[in-house]
Computed example of a mutant assay.
Amino acid sequence: MDPYHHGELAVQKRAGLAASARAVSAAIMTEVPDVAAEFLAAQPMLVVGAADHEGAVWSSLLTGEPGFITVDGPSSLDIAAAPSPGDPLHATLTGRTRLGMIAVEPGTRRRMRMNGTARPHGHGLAVELEQIYANCPKYIQKRVPERRPVTPGVPRRGHALTAQDIVLVEGTDTFFVATADQDGNADASHRGGNPGFLRVLGPDRLRWPDYVGNSMFNTFGNLEVNPRAGLLVPDWTTGTLLHVTGTAVVDWDPAHATVLPGAQRVVDFTVREVVRVDHASPLRWSAPQYSRFNPPTAPEGTGT
């Protein structure tokens, strides 16, 4: 079976990278190799993405002591964690859900992407995988975690970014984006760059550059058939998580990309709903060592 759906194939062709995408598709596996199982067992966090019961796509973070992600079959995971009641994916993951996942290890700049179907299991989730593959280390900022006891704040909900949210977004060097195809099959992906690469155009408008990637175009392929997307912006020093859902459009105009250094394309995001949970994560991270692949950030006032 072709590992790509028609939206991904269309975007690969438009970008002129269909041959490259076909070549790298050999990395997509259906069973978890031993090296991947060892990697997952060492991780203290897992980013997940899914569409909720109304079709809105959200991204969130699961955490635990290393070992909370266990490979318990050739294509199955046991995750000893689930979203808290204030999390936008809490209700969604109480039932059978198409789930996208990405495990990122900032200390080594390694990452592993997975997708499949999750169901509640014990105090966590059981996931039957359909795809698993490693991604390149580009744009990952190197950080080392420390675990601290926390009491998550009360979730704050709204339909636009607050001034406090904007400060977090404008200073971030990393966020995660979840998307889904027309059938709800979800994907979770990492985006990284120098602070300022995720631009705030207004309380309900964001923009970011699309840098050179692996040519699979999983995110863009989903957006080709379903514009809904969910962003997760973590505060690495406080454990605060900013969840944003809305719609994303890929701007293919080369003139718009050229004003953002390193950009191949530009993505415009419209905010529909925001959930902020202060101190949601028990993980605190060291100051970043920025990736040498990060392009410089464009001056304020350009690309708006």
Rank of each mutant, 00 (worst) to 15 (best):
115 N>Y: 13
108 T>I: 14
104 V>A: 02
113 R>V: 07
154 V>W: 14
139 Y>W: 06
132 I>W: 07
196 G>S: 00
150 V>Y: 01
134 A>F: 02
107 G>K: 05
172 T>Q: 04
132 I>C: 10
113 R>I: 10
115 N>T: 11
201 L>Q: 03
133 Y>Q: 04
137 P>H: 12
161 L>C: 10
111 R>T: 01
101 M>R: 11
164 Q>G: 15
207 R>V: 09
122 G>S: 06
207 R>K: 13
160 A>S: 15
142 K>W: 02
207 R>H: 11
150 V>P: 00
166 I>L: 07
191 R>H: 05
150 V>E: 03
104 V>L: 13
175 F>C: 10
157 R>Y: 07
119 R>E: 15
207 R>N: 08
175 F>A: 09
171 G>K: 07
141 Q>L: 00
120 P>T: 06
177 V>H: 00
123 H>P: 10
203 P>S: 14
119 R>N: 14
124 G>H: 12
196 G>N: 00
163 A>C: 01
203 P>D: 04
170 E>S: 15
134 A>W: 03
120 P>L: 09
193 G>C: 09
112 M>A: 07
159 H>N: 14
114 M>T: 12
144 V>K: 14
110 R>A: 03
208 W>C: 08
182 Q>V: 08
151 T>L: 10
117 T>R: 05
172 T>C: 14
206 L>F: 15
136 C>M: 07
178 A>V: 10
